[in-house]
């Protein structure tokens, strides 16, 4: 009997996305109770396999698990036998021998969660696989947008930055498009993956042009390694061309909000005044992260059959 997984947003039907967001909204109320914990997942065990450093996503998953009363075990690359040359498969098999119901995995290799889903009986949740997908991030972003705008359909979202290496961008493109938003990408040509227009997005290299009429400016984190890899001449030039600054935003006539998946490189892709400014919903994103992850854990934990 196959378990249900959350591997990516690609191909996820709109009704499914809506169910996850609706469920997450109900869970937001739980987070405001005097006791921010419900007994729902008592007896369910969850393994968090983080093969890549991550504070935000890991803490968010842990909180979600604890608030649902799940038992959890954390394996991070630094503490695990991964460093001793044990393969992902061995690690996973060992975790499964401990009778784990749900595995949350963050890994630098695209498809690592798919690999686990093939070799395990547990449900697998992709907490970010390389530059491929980061479905829980996209879902929390969609929830944040739905709260702000009431409706996702017709929104114009501009994603700015390093698209090539961004799992956040990919998952968000799928999710936003599926819910009827329009998506534009903007960044240096060297960080724009080949034929990305095929995903149904517009591509810009000029930021001021891209931002015209944007309801949402989604700023991606710029990995500082990109300069060393020769994809950018300098960070200074990146900031000048593609950095989100208050000065640039004052030119915009429409109302808009600013999003960022964190952690921020203040002063590189976004200035502190913008990140902490009135347009920013970055902290809402963090709050919604816990609710969305609770919803996903809840929905997957009942699924003993493929659904």
């Amino acid at each position: 009997m196959g378990r249900e997984h959350l591997l990516g947003i690609e191909g996820m039907p709109a009704e499914r996305i809506k169910l996850i967001l609706d469920t997450a909204e109900s869970f937001k109320e739980v987070l405001e109770r005097p006791i921010r914990k419900v007994p729902t997942l008592r007896g369910v065990s969850v393994a968090n396999l983080f093969f890549e450093p991550s504070t935000r996503t890991r803490v968010s998953f842990e909180l979600a698990e604890k608030r649902l009363s799940a038992e959890l075990v954390n394996v991070s690359a630094a503490s695990s036998s991964v460093l001793k040359g044990e393969t992902l498969k061995d690690t996973a098999r060992n975790i499964e021998a401990m009778k784990v119901d749900i595995v949350v995995i963050r890994h630098s290799a695209p498809g690592a969660p798919h690999f686990l889903a093939r070799c395990l009986e547990s449900s697998v949740i992709n907490a970010g696989d390389g530059a491929h997908e980061h479905p829980t991030q996209a879902l929390l972003d969609l929830l944040t947008l739905r709260e702000r705008f009431g409706e996702l359909k017709g929104l114009r979202v501009v994603i700015v930055g390093d698209i090539t290496y961004s799992r956040v961008a990919r998952s968000n493109i799928w999710g936003l498009k599926r819910m009827g938003a329009s998506v534009a990408l903007c960044g240096p040509p060297t960080l724009m993956p080949l034929r990305v227009e095929g995903m149904g997005v517009e591509v810009y290299h000029n930021l001021d042009q891209a931002l015209q009429g944007a309801d949402v400016i989604y700023v991606l984190r710029l990995q500082l390694e990109r300069q060393k890899e020769g994809l950018l001449p300098s960070l200074r030039e990146y900031t000048n061309q593609w950095g989100i600054t208050a000065q640039r935003l004052t030119k915009l006539k429409q109302k808009f909000i600013i999003m960022h998946p964190g952690p921020l490189n203040r002063g590189i892709e976004i200035t502190p005044e913008v990140a902490d400014g009135p347009y920013s919903v970055i902290l809402d994103q963090v709050t919604n992260g816990v609710a969305v992850r609770m919803a996903i854990l809840y929905l997957l934990s009942g699924g003993k059959v493929e659904g």
Binding site: P110, D129, A131, H132, L194, M199
Partner: peptide
């Protein structure tokens, strides 16, 4: 291969 597929999968092309 670097193509639309590598773009979708986030695999190095």
């Amino acid at each position: 291969n670097e193509s639309f597929t590598s773009t979708l999968l986030g695999l190095g092309g």
